[in-house]
Amino acid sequence: MTETRNIGDTLLKVDNISLSFGGVKAITGVSLEIREREICAIIGPNGAGKTSMLNVINGFYHPQEGTITFGGEVRRKMRPHLAAQGGIARTFQNVALFTGMSTLDNIMTGRNLKMKRNFLWQAINIGPARKEELEHREFVERIIDFLEIEAIRKTPVGRLPYGLQKRVELGRALAAEPKLLLLDEPMAGMNVEEKEDMCRFILDTNDEFGTTIGLIEHDMGVVMDLSDHVVVLDHGEKIADGVPDVVRADQNVIDAYLGVAHE
């Protein structure tokens, strides 16, 4: 499968990252690589440091040690909006949509980085500002079509069911045309049909836009099916890294994680 997927060079390199809060160590010396156009899953038991890892990658937490290389740039400290400008988008474990705004507006916020007209133009809303707004609207409509959420375009997202909210959140991340898309448990709390839909969207995103995807997920079936490459964390340390079949057979992983599930 890997041969046909046209996977490129390393896009993101996490090197020897350590993060602690006060005395509590969340991540200890973890290194991992995500390559262009691949789907990389980060798995591990609760509290393994998966979400913390995503937070480090997009600059929300600042690690005490280690470096991150993204698109050729090496850095340790990062402000989240700079990460976003660099092309990292993400979704959240607990849906983090702007509940007071409509689906359309939520996804439009994902385009904000690309909108340049200053407020004076917007104030009179003619000429360039209006044209810009319409161009981005068209792009967003394509995402809305892609995710099949045309019918809820103008609905405030606070009123949507959970599964759709997750989909809108994916749409908002896609609107930024990210190079690297981080998904934090995109299928948590979904039923089988919703999971299937979501898997389809993730694969299509990867296929059609060539977006690199980093994903945290608990559903082993999903992880093994979707990903090109799996990283396993436990207690803040990396215990395995490789293609799904190898990781599945790894004794450490079975002991730490999968084994527990089969007992």
């Binding site: 997009n58 929300f60 402000r79 989240p80 909006h81 990460a83 976003a84 400008q85 988008a89 993400r90 959240f92 983090a96 949509l97 702007f98 509940t99 007071g100 705004m101 916020t109 994902g110 904000n112 980085l113 908002r172 991340a173 930024a176």
Partner: peptide, 11 residues
Amino acid sequence: DMDIAAEIIGI
């Protein structure tokens, strides 16, 4: 609505 999420998507 959610300042942290806003910052993370680049606002």
